[in-house]
Amino acid sequence: MDKTINVTLKIWRQKGPKVKGAFETYKLDNISTDSSFLEMLDILNEQLVSKGQEPVVFDHDCREGICGACSLYINGHPHGPDDSVTTCQLHMRRFKDGETITIEPWRSAGFPVIRDLMVDRQAFEKIMQSGGYVSVNTGGVPDANAIGISKIDADEAMDSASCIGCGACVAACKNGSAMLFVSAKVSQLALLPQGRIEAARRAKAMVARMDELGFGNCTNTGACEAECPKNVSITNIARLNREFISAKLKD
């Protein structure tokens, strides 16, 4: 038989970006420890709707840790207490019977709240648009095996490319910096010969856009790396800094 627990939830409710929000408390009984955190919220929402109330709004889609849609600050941690997982992969077996769980949206100037636990991450889109790509059009490219790439570089690029764009790094950072997110993309492309050509230009453009959008400065606290659900490494930031400095020197 499944084990079940009872929990108390303190959830941030906020009707809209300009409306004042507040915590609401809900009690949930008999939650299977095999259910995921979001399934627990589904159960809450089913109960709220059955009582004629509006459900708690939160972003989610894949529910397997890859789309980056889910967010949530759970008991003071982005994506909750478990390591290397997103909120949707978190399971209730990580919580104790009788525990009070506090659930908040990402809190960062860069990500305004839309409703309840849903935030606006358009700023990440704008950073990507400023240069998070290799400038090639469809067609007319060389054969895929024309350029060899060392396995080590390819694997490292893959690690940087695992960023899911969730924004936990920004939410975790006391300065609200987006450096881990930006550096992951810059590193991935700088490590590959295809992306190398524009590496300097890309680093400058993405950092400039990040600054323009009001994200804070990086002071190397390492909070981002600790909370990143995909273990994106802070060494990416060092690489970004190198790219950035060499780009500036060339100016």
Partner: peptide, 22 residues
């Protein structure tokens, strides 16, 4: 085949062998 070429040109980090090929 064109798809694979295109993706590599975009910087998709496909798995590689030690020799550097896909």
């Amino acid at each position: 085949n064109d798809i694979i070429d295109q993706c590599v040109a975009q910087g998709v980090p496909f798995a590689r062998e030690y020799g550097g090929l896909l």
